[in-house]
Nucleic acid binder design. Structure first.
Length: 489
RNA sequence: GGGUUGGUAGCUCAGCGGUAGAGCAGCGGCCUUUUAAGCCGUUGGUCCAGGGUUCGAUCCCCUGCCAACCCA
Protein backbone atom coordinates (compact mmCIF):
# COMPACT_ATOMS: atom_id res chain seq x y z
CA UNK A 1 0.00 0.00 0.00
CA UNK A 2 1.35 3.36 -0.98
CA UNK A 3 0.57 6.00 1.54
CA UNK A 4 3.30 8.50 0.70
CA UNK A 5 1.84 11.56 -0.90
CA UNK A 6 4.79 11.95 -3.20
CA UNK A 7 3.15 10.02 -5.97
CA UNK A 8 2.85 11.99 -9.17
CA UNK A 9 -0.69 10.84 -9.85
CA UNK A 10 -1.81 12.11 -6.48
CA UNK A 11 -0.05 15.40 -7.06
CA UNK A 12 -1.84 15.82 -10.37
CA UNK A 13 -5.17 15.22 -8.73
CA UNK A 14 -4.38 17.66 -5.97
CA UNK A 15 -3.50 20.21 -8.62
CA UNK A 16 -6.88 19.66 -10.23
CA UNK A 17 -8.54 20.08 -6.88
CA UNK A 18 -6.72 23.39 -6.47
CA UNK A 19 -7.75 24.42 -9.97
CA UNK A 20 -11.38 23.73 -9.16
CA UNK A 21 -11.14 25.75 -5.97
CA UNK A 22 -9.54 28.60 -7.88
CA UNK A 23 -12.71 28.71 -9.93
CA UNK A 24 -14.79 28.93 -6.78
CA UNK A 25 -15.80 25.28 -6.87
CA UNK A 26 -15.40 23.25 -3.69
CA UNK A 27 -15.66 19.65 -4.85
CA UNK A 28 -16.66 18.51 -1.38
CA UNK A 29 -19.19 21.18 -0.52
CA UNK A 30 -22.00 20.49 -2.92
CA UNK A 31 -25.07 18.60 -1.95
CA UNK A 32 -27.03 16.90 -4.63
CA UNK A 33 -30.14 14.78 -4.36
CA UNK A 34 -30.46 12.25 -7.15
CA UNK A 35 -34.03 11.30 -7.97
CA UNK A 36 -33.16 7.97 -9.54
CA UNK A 37 -30.34 5.45 -9.35
CA UNK A 38 -27.86 5.19 -12.21
CA UNK A 39 -28.58 1.58 -13.03
CA UNK A 40 -32.25 2.19 -12.37
CA UNK A 41 -32.39 5.03 -14.89
CA UNK A 42 -30.74 2.81 -17.46
CA UNK A 43 -32.99 -0.18 -16.94
CA UNK A 44 -36.16 1.89 -16.68
CA UNK A 45 -35.32 3.60 -19.97
CA UNK A 46 -34.74 0.16 -21.47
CA UNK A 47 -38.08 -1.22 -20.32
CA UNK A 48 -39.92 1.91 -21.38
CA UNK A 49 -41.06 3.12 -17.96
CA UNK A 50 -38.80 6.13 -18.43
CA UNK A 51 -39.52 7.97 -21.67
CA UNK A 52 -37.22 9.68 -24.13
CA UNK A 53 -36.63 13.20 -22.83
CA UNK A 54 -37.60 12.37 -19.25
CA UNK A 55 -35.74 14.60 -16.80
CA UNK A 56 -33.48 12.83 -14.30
CA UNK A 57 -30.97 13.70 -11.61
CA UNK A 58 -28.28 11.05 -11.20
CA UNK A 59 -25.17 10.86 -9.07
CA UNK A 60 -22.31 8.41 -8.86
CA UNK A 61 -18.65 7.62 -9.18
CA UNK A 62 -17.03 8.19 -12.55
CA UNK A 63 -15.83 4.81 -13.79
CA UNK A 64 -15.13 5.57 -17.43
CA UNK A 65 -14.39 8.71 -19.37
CA UNK A 66 -14.38 9.02 -23.15
CA UNK A 67 -13.34 12.48 -24.29
CA UNK A 68 -14.45 13.41 -27.82
CA UNK A 69 -13.20 16.98 -27.71
CA UNK A 70 -16.30 19.14 -27.72
CA UNK A 71 -18.34 16.38 -26.17
CA UNK A 72 -17.61 13.71 -23.60
CA UNK A 73 -19.10 10.44 -22.46
CA UNK A 74 -18.80 9.47 -18.82
CA UNK A 75 -20.02 6.29 -17.15
CA UNK A 76 -21.15 6.90 -13.62
CA UNK A 77 -21.91 4.18 -11.15
CA UNK A 78 -23.85 3.89 -7.95
CA UNK A 79 -25.41 1.13 -5.88
CA UNK A 80 -27.97 0.35 -8.58
CA UNK A 81 -25.55 0.04 -11.47
CA UNK A 82 -24.11 2.35 -14.06
CA UNK A 83 -25.35 4.75 -16.66
CA UNK A 84 -23.70 6.76 -19.38
CA UNK A 85 -23.95 10.53 -19.32
CA UNK A 86 -23.23 12.74 -22.30
CA UNK A 87 -21.81 16.23 -21.87
CA UNK A 88 -21.72 18.66 -24.77
CA UNK A 89 -19.88 21.94 -24.93
CA UNK A 90 -22.66 23.85 -26.67
CA UNK A 91 -25.19 22.73 -24.03
CA UNK A 92 -23.09 23.34 -20.93
CA UNK A 93 -21.24 26.43 -22.13
CA UNK A 94 -17.50 26.92 -22.18
CA UNK A 95 -17.09 27.61 -18.48
CA UNK A 96 -18.89 24.56 -17.16
CA UNK A 97 -17.63 22.28 -19.88
CA UNK A 98 -14.11 23.30 -18.94
CA UNK A 99 -14.66 21.97 -15.42
CA UNK A 100 -14.61 18.48 -16.90
CA UNK A 101 -10.90 18.95 -17.57
CA UNK A 102 -10.35 18.69 -13.84
CA UNK A 103 -12.40 15.57 -13.36
CA UNK A 104 -10.80 12.14 -12.94
CA UNK A 105 -11.84 8.53 -12.73
CA UNK A 106 -13.00 7.88 -9.21
CA UNK A 107 -14.54 11.31 -8.63
CA UNK A 108 -18.21 11.62 -7.77
CA UNK A 109 -20.48 13.90 -9.72
CA UNK A 110 -24.16 14.68 -9.82
CA UNK A 111 -25.82 15.49 -13.12
CA UNK A 112 -29.20 16.73 -14.25
CA UNK A 113 -30.44 16.14 -17.74
CA UNK A 114 -32.79 14.16 -19.90
CA UNK A 115 -32.86 10.57 -21.01
CA UNK A 116 -32.04 9.74 -24.60
CA UNK A 117 -30.63 6.91 -26.63
CA UNK A 118 -27.33 7.31 -28.49
CA UNK A 119 -26.72 6.19 -32.02
CA UNK A 120 -25.12 3.06 -30.59
CA UNK A 121 -28.33 2.39 -28.70
CA UNK A 122 -26.99 3.17 -25.25
CA UNK A 123 -29.47 4.70 -22.78
CA UNK A 124 -27.85 7.93 -21.70
CA UNK A 125 -28.40 11.16 -19.82
CA UNK A 126 -27.93 14.34 -21.87
CA UNK A 127 -26.34 16.54 -19.25
CA UNK A 128 -27.78 20.02 -18.74
CA UNK A 129 -25.85 20.75 -15.56
CA UNK A 130 -23.57 18.96 -13.18
CA UNK A 131 -21.75 19.43 -9.89
CA UNK A 132 -18.60 17.82 -8.54
CA UNK A 133 -19.54 15.95 -5.36
CA UNK A 134 -16.21 14.48 -4.33
CA UNK A 135 -12.70 14.57 -5.71
CA UNK A 136 -10.72 11.36 -5.44
CA UNK A 137 -7.08 12.16 -4.68
CA UNK A 138 -5.94 8.64 -5.39
CA UNK A 139 -6.48 6.79 -8.65
CA UNK A 140 -8.79 3.76 -8.64
CA UNK A 141 -7.42 0.38 -9.64
CA UNK A 142 -7.63 -0.24 -13.35
CA UNK A 143 -11.18 -0.88 -14.44
CA UNK A 144 -10.39 -3.37 -17.12
CA UNK A 145 -7.87 -5.63 -15.44
CA UNK A 146 -9.43 -5.04 -12.07
CA UNK A 147 -7.67 -5.68 -8.82
CA UNK A 148 -6.12 -9.10 -8.50
CA UNK A 149 -3.56 -9.05 -5.75
CA UNK A 150 -5.24 -10.81 -2.83
CA UNK A 151 -3.53 -8.78 -0.16
CA UNK A 152 -4.77 -5.47 -1.54
CA UNK A 153 -8.20 -6.93 -2.15
CA UNK A 154 -8.53 -7.90 1.50
CA UNK A 155 -6.63 -5.03 3.07
CA UNK A 156 -8.35 -2.35 1.00
CA UNK A 157 -11.62 -4.13 0.43
CA UNK A 158 -13.26 -0.88 -0.72
CA UNK A 159 -11.08 -1.00 -3.83
CA UNK A 160 -12.08 -4.61 -4.44
CA UNK A 161 -15.75 -3.70 -4.09
CA UNK A 162 -15.30 -0.64 -6.26
CA UNK A 163 -14.02 -2.49 -9.31
CA UNK A 164 -14.95 -6.14 -8.89
CA UNK A 165 -18.70 -6.35 -9.32
CA UNK A 166 -18.79 -10.08 -8.61
CA UNK A 167 -17.19 -9.46 -5.23
CA UNK A 168 -19.72 -6.76 -4.40
CA UNK A 169 -22.46 -9.18 -5.41
CA UNK A 170 -21.24 -11.83 -2.96
CA UNK A 171 -21.44 -9.41 -0.06
CA UNK A 172 -24.88 -8.18 -0.99
CA UNK A 173 -25.97 -11.80 -1.11
CA UNK A 174 -24.44 -12.39 2.29
CA UNK A 175 -26.56 -9.58 3.67
CA UNK A 176 -29.66 -11.14 2.15
CA UNK A 177 -28.78 -14.54 3.60
CA UNK A 178 -28.59 -13.16 7.12
CA UNK A 179 -31.78 -11.20 6.59
CA UNK A 180 -33.58 -14.33 5.37
CA UNK A 181 -32.38 -16.28 8.40
CA UNK A 182 -33.72 -13.59 10.73
CA UNK A 183 -37.11 -13.44 9.13
CA UNK A 184 -37.35 -17.23 9.05
CA UNK A 185 -36.63 -17.57 12.77
CA UNK A 186 -38.87 -14.66 13.68
CA UNK A 187 -41.71 -16.22 11.74
CA UNK A 188 -41.33 -19.24 13.98
CA UNK A 189 -41.61 -17.21 17.14
CA UNK A 190 -37.91 -16.92 17.98
CA UNK A 191 -36.70 -13.69 19.50
CA UNK A 192 -33.26 -12.29 18.81
CA UNK A 193 -31.06 -11.49 21.78
CA UNK A 194 -27.60 -10.18 22.46
CA UNK A 195 -25.33 -11.79 25.04
CA UNK A 196 -21.88 -10.80 26.31
CA UNK A 197 -18.91 -10.91 24.01
CA UNK A 198 -16.56 -10.38 26.95
CA UNK A 199 -16.89 -13.31 29.31
CA UNK A 200 -15.12 -14.16 32.57
CA UNK A 201 -15.08 -17.80 31.44
CA UNK A 202 -15.16 -18.68 27.76
CA UNK A 203 -17.37 -21.74 27.58
CA UNK A 204 -19.63 -23.68 25.30
CA UNK A 205 -16.90 -25.07 23.06
CA UNK A 206 -13.36 -26.37 23.14
CA UNK A 207 -11.22 -23.61 21.66
CA UNK A 208 -8.47 -21.26 22.69
CA UNK A 209 -9.89 -17.84 23.54
CA UNK A 210 -8.50 -14.34 23.13
CA UNK A 211 -7.80 -12.56 26.40
CA UNK A 212 -8.44 -8.92 27.14
CA UNK A 213 -8.24 -6.86 30.29
CA UNK A 214 -10.73 -4.66 32.03
CA UNK A 215 -8.91 -1.86 33.80
CA UNK A 216 -11.58 -0.68 36.22
CA UNK A 217 -12.48 -4.18 37.37
CA UNK A 218 -8.84 -5.17 37.38
CA UNK A 219 -9.42 -8.55 35.78
CA UNK A 220 -9.05 -10.40 32.52
CA UNK A 221 -11.92 -11.27 30.24
CA UNK A 222 -12.15 -13.66 27.36
CA UNK A 223 -13.76 -12.97 24.04
CA UNK A 224 -16.48 -15.54 23.63
CA UNK A 225 -15.82 -18.75 21.73
CA UNK A 226 -19.50 -19.63 21.53
CA UNK A 227 -22.92 -18.24 22.36
CA UNK A 228 -24.27 -21.35 23.98
CA UNK A 229 -24.08 -20.94 27.73
CA UNK A 230 -25.73 -17.53 27.83
CA UNK A 231 -28.56 -18.51 25.52
CA UNK A 232 -29.29 -21.49 27.76
CA UNK A 233 -29.49 -19.15 30.74
CA UNK A 234 -32.29 -17.44 28.82
CA UNK A 235 -34.10 -20.77 28.46
CA UNK A 236 -33.93 -20.97 32.25
CA UNK A 237 -35.37 -17.47 32.35
CA UNK A 238 -38.35 -18.47 30.25
CA UNK A 239 -37.35 -17.25 26.79
CA UNK A 240 -38.45 -20.45 25.08
CA UNK A 241 -37.31 -19.61 21.59
CA UNK A 242 -34.17 -17.49 21.33
CA UNK A 243 -31.47 -16.93 18.80
CA UNK A 244 -28.42 -14.81 18.41
CA UNK A 245 -26.32 -14.00 15.37
CA UNK A 246 -22.97 -12.88 16.64
CA UNK A 247 -19.24 -12.92 16.38
CA UNK A 248 -17.22 -15.68 18.00
CA UNK A 249 -13.47 -15.48 18.48
CA UNK A 250 -11.08 -18.39 18.47
CA UNK A 251 -7.38 -17.92 18.97
CA UNK A 252 -6.32 -20.51 16.46
CA UNK A 253 -4.89 -20.77 12.99
CA UNK A 254 -6.08 -18.97 9.90
CA UNK A 255 -6.97 -21.02 6.84
CA UNK A 256 -9.33 -21.28 3.92
CA UNK A 257 -12.01 -22.39 6.40
CA UNK A 258 -10.99 -20.43 9.51
CA UNK A 259 -10.97 -16.77 10.43
CA UNK A 260 -10.15 -15.84 14.05
CA UNK A 261 -13.47 -14.04 14.31
CA UNK A 262 -16.44 -15.57 12.61
CA UNK A 263 -20.18 -15.22 12.64
CA UNK A 264 -22.27 -17.80 14.39
CA UNK A 265 -25.98 -18.35 14.62
CA UNK A 266 -27.28 -20.24 17.61
CA UNK A 267 -30.95 -20.99 18.25
CA UNK A 268 -32.61 -22.77 21.15
CA UNK A 269 -36.12 -24.08 21.30
CA UNK A 270 -37.70 -25.28 24.52
CA UNK A 271 -39.54 -28.60 24.34
CA UNK A 272 -37.66 -29.44 21.17
CA UNK A 273 -34.88 -31.95 20.65
CA UNK A 274 -32.25 -32.71 18.05
CA UNK A 275 -34.88 -33.96 15.64
CA UNK A 276 -36.78 -30.69 15.99
CA UNK A 277 -33.51 -29.01 15.11
CA UNK A 278 -33.06 -31.17 12.04
CA UNK A 279 -36.35 -29.96 10.70
CA UNK A 280 -35.42 -26.40 11.62
CA UNK A 281 -32.03 -26.48 9.91
CA UNK A 282 -33.36 -28.18 6.80
CA UNK A 283 -36.28 -25.77 6.46
CA UNK A 284 -34.17 -22.74 7.21
CA UNK A 285 -31.38 -23.51 4.74
CA UNK A 286 -33.91 -24.34 2.03
CA UNK A 287 -35.81 -21.13 2.76
CA UNK A 288 -32.63 -19.08 2.53
CA UNK A 289 -31.50 -20.81 -0.66
CA UNK A 290 -34.84 -20.18 -2.34
CA UNK A 291 -34.94 -16.55 -1.20
CA UNK A 292 -31.37 -15.64 -2.05
CA UNK A 293 -30.09 -18.05 -4.68
CA UNK A 294 -33.50 -18.83 -6.13
CA UNK A 295 -32.80 -22.54 -6.32
CA UNK A 296 -32.10 -25.62 -4.21
CA UNK A 297 -29.45 -26.65 -6.68
CA UNK A 298 -26.25 -24.83 -5.78
CA UNK A 299 -23.55 -24.72 -8.42
CA UNK A 300 -19.95 -23.87 -7.75
CA UNK A 301 -17.98 -22.75 -10.78
CA UNK A 302 -14.30 -22.15 -11.41
CA UNK A 303 -12.72 -19.11 -13.03
CA UNK A 304 -13.58 -20.40 -16.48
CA UNK A 305 -17.21 -20.81 -15.52
CA UNK A 306 -17.06 -24.61 -15.45
CA UNK A 307 -19.24 -26.24 -12.83
CA UNK A 308 -16.87 -27.93 -10.40
CA UNK A 309 -19.39 -28.94 -7.75
CA UNK A 310 -23.10 -29.22 -7.43
CA UNK A 311 -24.96 -29.33 -4.14
CA UNK A 312 -28.53 -30.58 -4.06
CA UNK A 313 -30.42 -29.13 -1.11
CA UNK A 314 -33.71 -30.78 -2.01
CA UNK A 315 -35.30 -32.23 1.14
CA UNK A 316 -35.50 -34.65 2.81
CA UNK A 317 -31.81 -34.62 3.65
CA UNK A 318 -29.88 -37.79 4.28
CA UNK A 319 -29.70 -38.90 7.92
CA UNK A 320 -27.04 -41.33 9.00
CA UNK A 321 -25.42 -42.33 12.26
CA UNK A 322 -21.83 -41.36 12.94
CA UNK A 323 -20.81 -44.92 13.70
CA UNK A 324 -22.46 -46.17 10.54
CA UNK A 325 -20.44 -43.75 8.39
CA UNK A 326 -17.26 -44.72 10.19
CA UNK A 327 -17.96 -48.43 9.68
CA UNK A 328 -18.58 -47.85 5.99
CA UNK A 329 -15.30 -46.06 5.56
CA UNK A 330 -13.01 -47.74 8.07
CA UNK A 331 -14.37 -51.27 8.35
CA UNK A 332 -17.47 -52.85 9.81
CA UNK A 333 -15.45 -54.15 12.75
CA UNK A 334 -14.02 -50.74 13.59
CA UNK A 335 -15.71 -50.47 16.97
CA UNK A 336 -15.04 -54.09 17.92
CA UNK A 337 -11.28 -54.24 17.38
CA UNK A 338 -8.72 -53.25 20.00
CA UNK A 339 -7.75 -49.63 20.46
CA UNK A 340 -4.22 -50.25 19.14
CA UNK A 341 -5.58 -51.88 15.99
CA UNK A 342 -7.80 -48.84 15.38
CA UNK A 343 -4.79 -46.60 15.67
CA UNK A 344 -2.86 -48.73 13.21
CA UNK A 345 -5.73 -48.83 10.74
CA UNK A 346 -6.28 -45.08 10.99
CA UNK A 347 -2.68 -44.54 9.97
CA UNK A 348 -3.04 -46.97 7.07
CA UNK A 349 -6.15 -45.12 5.91
CA UNK A 350 -4.23 -41.87 5.92
CA UNK A 351 -5.86 -40.13 8.86
CA UNK A 352 -3.69 -37.81 10.86
CA UNK A 353 -3.65 -38.99 14.45
CA UNK A 354 -0.42 -37.53 15.75
CA UNK A 355 -2.24 -35.25 18.16
CA UNK A 356 -4.69 -37.91 19.26
CA UNK A 357 -4.34 -39.35 22.72
CA UNK A 358 -7.82 -40.72 23.31
CA UNK A 359 -9.46 -43.54 21.43
CA UNK A 360 -12.46 -41.46 20.34
CA UNK A 361 -10.10 -38.85 18.89
CA UNK A 362 -8.65 -41.45 16.55
CA UNK A 363 -12.12 -42.21 15.25
CA UNK A 364 -12.87 -38.52 14.97
CA UNK A 365 -9.66 -38.01 12.98
CA UNK A 366 -10.88 -40.63 10.53
CA UNK A 367 -14.22 -38.87 10.32
CA UNK A 368 -12.73 -35.43 9.75
CA UNK A 369 -10.12 -36.48 7.24
CA UNK A 370 -11.86 -39.22 5.28
CA UNK A 371 -15.60 -38.79 5.67
CA UNK A 372 -16.54 -35.16 6.19
CA UNK A 373 -14.91 -33.90 2.96
CA UNK A 374 -17.01 -36.37 0.97
CA UNK A 375 -20.33 -35.10 2.34
CA UNK A 376 -21.26 -32.62 -0.38
CA UNK A 377 -25.03 -32.93 -0.39
CA UNK A 378 -26.57 -32.14 3.00
CA UNK A 379 -26.13 -34.95 5.50
CA UNK A 380 -27.24 -35.10 9.12
CA UNK A 381 -24.58 -37.14 10.87
CA UNK A 382 -26.30 -38.21 14.09
CA UNK A 383 -25.35 -39.90 17.35
CA UNK A 384 -21.78 -38.77 17.79
CA UNK A 385 -19.67 -40.35 20.56
CA UNK A 386 -20.53 -38.76 23.87
CA UNK A 387 -16.92 -37.71 24.52
CA UNK A 388 -17.09 -35.26 21.64
CA UNK A 389 -20.01 -33.27 22.98
CA UNK A 390 -20.35 -32.70 26.70
CA UNK A 391 -23.43 -30.46 26.50
CA UNK A 392 -25.82 -32.94 24.92
CA UNK A 393 -28.05 -35.66 26.30
CA UNK A 394 -27.06 -39.29 26.08
CA UNK A 395 -28.88 -41.34 23.51
CA UNK A 396 -31.25 -43.82 25.21
CA UNK A 397 -30.67 -46.60 22.66
CA UNK A 398 -26.87 -46.25 22.68
CA UNK A 399 -25.54 -44.46 25.76
CA UNK A 400 -22.03 -44.28 24.29
CA UNK A 401 -23.46 -41.68 21.94
CA UNK A 402 -25.38 -38.45 22.36
CA UNK A 403 -28.54 -37.12 20.77
CA UNK A 404 -26.90 -34.78 18.31
CA UNK A 405 -26.28 -34.21 14.69
CA UNK A 406 -23.63 -32.48 12.69
CA UNK A 407 -25.04 -31.18 9.48
CA UNK A 408 -22.39 -31.44 6.79
CA UNK A 409 -22.75 -29.72 3.45
CA UNK A 410 -20.09 -28.98 0.87
CA UNK A 411 -17.63 -31.17 2.74
CA UNK A 412 -17.75 -28.95 5.79
CA UNK A 413 -19.45 -28.95 9.15
CA UNK A 414 -22.07 -26.29 8.88
CA UNK A 415 -24.51 -26.85 11.70
CA UNK A 416 -24.24 -28.90 14.85
CA UNK A 417 -27.33 -29.43 17.00
CA UNK A 418 -28.17 -31.28 20.18
CA UNK A 419 -30.84 -32.38 22.47
CA UNK A 420 -29.51 -30.15 25.20
CA UNK A 421 -28.45 -31.56 28.50
CA UNK A 422 -30.69 -30.08 31.20
CA UNK A 423 -29.80 -32.39 34.09
CA UNK A 424 -27.58 -30.14 36.22
CA UNK A 425 -25.87 -33.02 38.01
CA UNK A 426 -25.06 -34.93 34.83
CA UNK A 427 -23.95 -31.68 33.20
CA UNK A 428 -21.61 -30.83 36.06
CA UNK A 429 -20.03 -34.28 35.86
CA UNK A 430 -19.49 -34.01 32.13
CA UNK A 431 -17.93 -30.57 32.33
CA UNK A 432 -15.66 -31.54 35.20
CA UNK A 433 -14.62 -34.63 33.30
CA UNK A 434 -13.79 -32.54 30.27
CA UNK A 435 -11.99 -29.84 32.20
CA UNK A 436 -9.81 -32.40 33.95
CA UNK A 437 -7.71 -30.69 36.60
CA UNK A 438 -8.44 -27.17 35.50
CA UNK A 439 -11.46 -26.46 37.64
CA UNK A 440 -11.46 -22.73 36.87
CA UNK A 441 -12.58 -23.38 33.35
CA UNK A 442 -16.01 -24.52 34.49
CA UNK A 443 -18.72 -21.90 34.30
CA UNK A 444 -20.19 -22.31 37.77
CA UNK A 445 -22.82 -19.67 37.20
CA UNK A 446 -24.12 -21.60 34.21
CA UNK A 447 -24.45 -24.73 36.37
CA UNK A 448 -26.31 -22.73 39.01
CA UNK A 449 -28.69 -21.60 36.29
CA UNK A 450 -29.29 -25.22 35.27
CA UNK A 451 -29.99 -26.07 38.89
CA UNK A 452 -32.84 -23.59 38.76
CA UNK A 453 -34.36 -25.76 36.04
CA UNK A 454 -33.96 -25.56 32.26
CA UNK A 455 -36.77 -26.88 30.09
CA UNK A 456 -35.90 -29.72 27.72
CA UNK A 457 -34.69 -28.09 24.55
CA UNK A 458 -33.14 -28.53 21.19
CA UNK A 459 -30.34 -26.23 20.21
CA UNK A 460 -28.45 -25.59 17.03
CA UNK A 461 -25.53 -23.57 15.82
CA UNK A 462 -24.65 -22.56 12.32
CA UNK A 463 -21.46 -21.12 10.92
CA UNK A 464 -22.78 -18.26 8.86
CA UNK A 465 -19.55 -17.76 6.97
CA UNK A 466 -19.43 -21.37 5.86
CA UNK A 467 -23.11 -21.27 4.97
CA UNK A 468 -22.32 -18.28 2.76
CA UNK A 469 -19.40 -20.11 1.16
CA UNK A 470 -21.68 -23.01 0.36
CA UNK A 471 -24.56 -20.94 -0.97
CA UNK A 472 -22.45 -18.40 -2.85
CA UNK A 473 -19.89 -20.75 -4.33
CA UNK A 474 -16.86 -19.31 -2.57
CA UNK A 475 -13.91 -21.55 -1.75
CA UNK A 476 -12.29 -19.35 0.88
CA UNK A 477 -13.81 -17.88 4.02
CA UNK A 478 -11.91 -14.69 3.19
CA UNK A 479 -14.17 -14.19 0.23
CA UNK A 480 -17.30 -14.04 2.38
CA UNK A 481 -15.85 -11.88 5.18
CA UNK A 482 -15.50 -8.23 4.21
CA UNK A 483 -12.38 -7.61 6.25
CA UNK A 484 -10.68 -10.93 6.97
CA UNK A 485 -7.94 -10.99 9.58
CA UNK A 486 -4.52 -10.05 8.25
CA UNK A 487 -1.23 -9.30 9.86
CA UNK A 488 -1.25 -5.58 10.68
CA UNK A 489 1.00 -3.49 8.50
C1' G B 1 5.43 -24.72 12.27
C1' G B 2 6.51 -27.32 7.07
C1' G B 3 6.11 -27.06 1.66
C1' U B 4 5.04 -24.49 -3.03
C1' U B 5 4.65 -20.03 -5.70
C1' G B 6 5.28 -15.05 -5.96
C1' G B 7 7.07 -9.55 -4.80
C1' U B 8 9.27 -5.23 -11.57
C1' A B 9 5.35 1.75 -13.34
C1' G B 10 -0.98 3.89 -10.27
C1' C B 11 -3.41 -1.22 -12.22
C1' U B 12 -2.56 -6.00 -14.95
C1' C B 13 1.74 -8.34 -16.34
C1' A B 14 6.27 -9.46 -19.66
C1' G B 15 11.46 -9.69 -19.40
C1' C B 16 16.63 -10.78 -18.57
C1' G B 17 24.15 -11.81 -16.44
C1' G B 18 25.41 -6.08 -20.16
C1' U B 19 22.27 0.96 -17.75
C1' A B 20 14.19 -1.47 -17.65
C1' G B 21 9.40 -3.22 -21.28
C1' A B 22 3.97 -3.62 -22.96
C1' G B 23 -1.30 -2.62 -22.39
C1' C B 24 -4.40 0.31 -19.52
C1' A B 25 -4.36 4.94 -16.41
C1' G B 26 -1.82 9.70 -16.30
C1' C B 27 0.06 14.22 -19.05
C1' G B 28 -0.07 17.34 -24.03
C1' G B 29 -2.61 17.61 -28.81
C1' C B 30 -6.88 16.28 -32.59
C1' C B 31 -11.90 14.77 -32.67
C1' U B 32 -19.79 16.75 -30.86
C1' U B 33 -22.95 9.65 -30.66
C1' U B 34 -18.43 7.02 -27.78
C1' U B 35 -18.72 2.63 -24.68
C1' A B 36 -11.91 -1.71 -23.24
C1' A B 37 -13.46 4.89 -28.27
C1' G B 38 -9.66 6.13 -31.89
C1' C B 39 -5.16 8.74 -33.72
C1' C B 40 -0.29 11.53 -32.71
C1' G B 41 3.17 12.69 -28.94
C1' U B 42 4.83 11.94 -23.89
C1' U B 43 5.93 11.54 -18.27
C1' G B 44 6.55 7.85 -14.86
C1' G B 45 10.86 2.70 -11.72
C1' U B 46 14.80 1.96 -4.53
C1' C B 47 12.96 -4.28 -10.34
C1' C B 48 10.88 -6.11 -1.68
C1' A B 49 15.55 -5.54 1.62
C1' G B 50 20.57 -6.95 2.93
C1' G B 51 24.80 -9.83 1.80
C1' G B 52 27.59 -12.95 -1.74
C1' U B 53 29.49 -14.61 -6.77
C1' U B 54 30.93 -11.59 -11.09
C1' C B 55 34.46 -6.85 -14.89
C1' G B 56 29.14 -6.11 -14.41
C1' A B 57 23.21 -8.64 -10.78
C1' U B 58 16.39 -6.84 -11.38
C1' C B 59 18.22 -11.73 -13.22
C1' C B 60 22.50 -16.59 -10.24
C1' C B 61 23.45 -17.99 -4.72
C1' C B 62 22.45 -17.07 0.64
C1' U B 63 19.68 -14.66 4.50
C1' G B 64 15.62 -11.84 5.87
C1' C B 65 10.74 -9.41 5.22
C1' C B 66 5.86 -9.63 3.07
C1' A B 67 1.93 -12.28 0.67
C1' A B 68 -1.07 -16.20 -1.54
C1' C B 69 -2.06 -21.32 -1.75
C1' C B 70 -1.45 -26.29 0.26
C1' C B 71 -0.23 -29.30 4.57
C1' A B 72 0.01 -29.61 10.02
Amino acid sequence: MHTEDTNALIEQRKAKLAALRARGIDPFADKFKPDIGCGEARSRFQDGSLAEGAPVAVAGRIVAHRDMGKSQFLDIKDYTGRVQIYAQKNVLGDTQFDVLKHIDLGDFIGARGTMFRTRAGEPSVRVESFVVLSKALRPPPGQWYGLAEPETRYRQRYLDLMVNDDVAHVFRQRSRIISAIRSFLESRGFIEVETPVMQAIAGGAAAKPFVTHHNALGCDFYLRISLELYLKRLLVGGFDRVFEIGRNFRNEGISRKHNPEFTMLEAYQAYGDYETMMELVESMVCHVAREVVGSLLIKHVDKEGQVVRQIDLTPPWRRVKYKELVRQRAGSDWFEIASEQRRQRAIELGADIEQCTEDYEVTQAVFEKLIEPTLIDPTFVTHAPKELIPLAKLSPDDPTTVEVFECCINGQEIAPAYTEQNDPIAQRERLEQQAGQERQKIDGDFLVALEHGMPPAGGMGMGIDRLCMMLLGQESIRDVILFPQLRPK
